[in-house]
Design a protein around this nucleic acid. Structure first.
Lengths: 231, 231
DNA sequence: ATCCGCCCTTGACTTTAGTCAAGGGATTAT
DNA sequence: ATAATCCCTTGACTAAAGTCAAGGGCGGAT
């Protein structure tokens, strides 16, 4: 491995909260079983079912984790950006296969880490294990939220919920940072239905759509929709 | 705490794989912050949103973890039996609230463990942490399976999948060990729809229903349904 | 034994969401 | 400038699943 790259890896590792608690010695060992991988936009990283030897950390770019039905419908489980870890489930589950597919949405720089070696480090450093546990726990929390949405709420309610969650900082504006097509795959529907649902909220006077900027005109009713409305 | 009960707790802890790797000393400490709780069938253990200070291990009985919509529709995330751990997500996620509700389906004996103390033990014993990581990872795997089902498959396909998974040991018989009503909440539908779906598979000659025993007459076609059919 | 309640099933209908087809608008390529 | 492509939207239709209502069968209680 070229020295420049190794240095790059060590640098990258140093900055990541995941590895807080490792001794310099351990960092060095980890460095030895890491590699930086560059992918262009639209390149696949792995497919559901592929053998999983490594997991990844996004150094730059954006990664989409998704499931695909045979008919081609897509559901997006995650969009990951800089600093986030992904594909770590098969390292710990005992099922050594990726449970979903991953593709780069933009040009990406990824840190690929050897799973077996990382497990060994977790065995030595409880801090690292606790950090991973908190990552897993937050992901489970998020998944149970998605399951609730899909099983108990209709599209209108899911969209209302999404808009409210996106607008948490700004008082009444939700900025959609992804294509509508992508958003439909996040919400578990298709572009046509999403389009109609935006229309309905608009017609009902709850939002005003201006391209990617959605003005929330009636947070209260949106909130009710998000909590109550199902079908 | 009465001595008899403490002994009971220590006994219980000893038998559980989750705590392999703890020294006798640590087991003793853990014993000090555990309690055995008995619940009758149908008693609530906690509700979504309750503050989460403890998590549980099922010593005997059966526990249902579920989400409820305002209209009363239910989705069952898990059914847990003897030896299984639950409600551990909020201990590690940093969101100190149960993300779903829990109720006893049968009379239950539960071990309630103080979360903060357990975290401290994980900090001392990487084995325990790794074990928890594998529990979390398998749960994430399972959840991504559920999400795939709900977002990409229709009820017929989900039922086919369920029947095949249940019949994995016996060659062509699936024993449904829960009420049809319960099964419908596991599959993300309602009893009427489930009933009709059983009917359809029956009419198509893929299964023969005999009470809770389902004979699988055509595993191949069922497999195709489970993988391909969506809508 | 009879009654009651619960579970499951069925039928008829409604609602929700997906399919298919078409078209507008913006961006990029030729 | 024009064409091609992609994204989004809309309309008309279809399919899937939920709602409401009714009834049968079984088991437990009186």
């Amino acid at each position: 491995m070229p020295d420049a790259q190794t240095t790059g890896v060590a640098d990258a590792l140093q900055k990541l909260a995941y590895f807080r608690g490792l001794s310099p010695d351990q960092i060095e060992r980890l460095t030895g079983c890491c590699a930086i991988r560059r992918h262009a936009a639209d390149e696949m990283i792995f497919q559901e079912g592929d053998a999983a030897m490594v997991f990844y950390i996004v150094l730059s770019g954006q990664v989409k984790i998704y499931k695909l039905s045979r008919e081609g419908k897509e559901f997006i489980l995650h969009l990951f950006g800089t600093g986030e870890i992904f594909a770590e489930v098969p390292i710990f589950s005992g099922i050594p296969v990726y449970p979903a597919s991953a593709v780069c949405l933009k040009d990406c720089e990824l840190l690929a880490i050897h799973g077996e070696e990382f497990r060994a480090l977790v065995h030595e450093s409880p801090d690292v294990g606790l950090h991973m546990l908190s990552v897993f726990a937050r992901r489970l929390h998020q998944f149970s939220h998605i399951i609730e949405d899909l099983s108990l709420r209709n599209v209108e309610s899911r969209l209302a919920r999404y808009l409210l969650s996106v607008s948490e900082n700004s008082p009444d504006k939700a900025l959609i940072r992804v294509q509508k097509k992508t958003l439909s795959a996040i919400l578990g529907t298709i572009p046509e239905t999403l389009s109609r649902t935006f229309r309905k909220l608009s017609d009902d006077g709850l939002i005003r759509v201006d391209g990617n900027a959605i003005r929330l005109l009636d947070r209260d009713t949106l909130g009710q929709l998000a909590d109550i409305e199902v079908s």
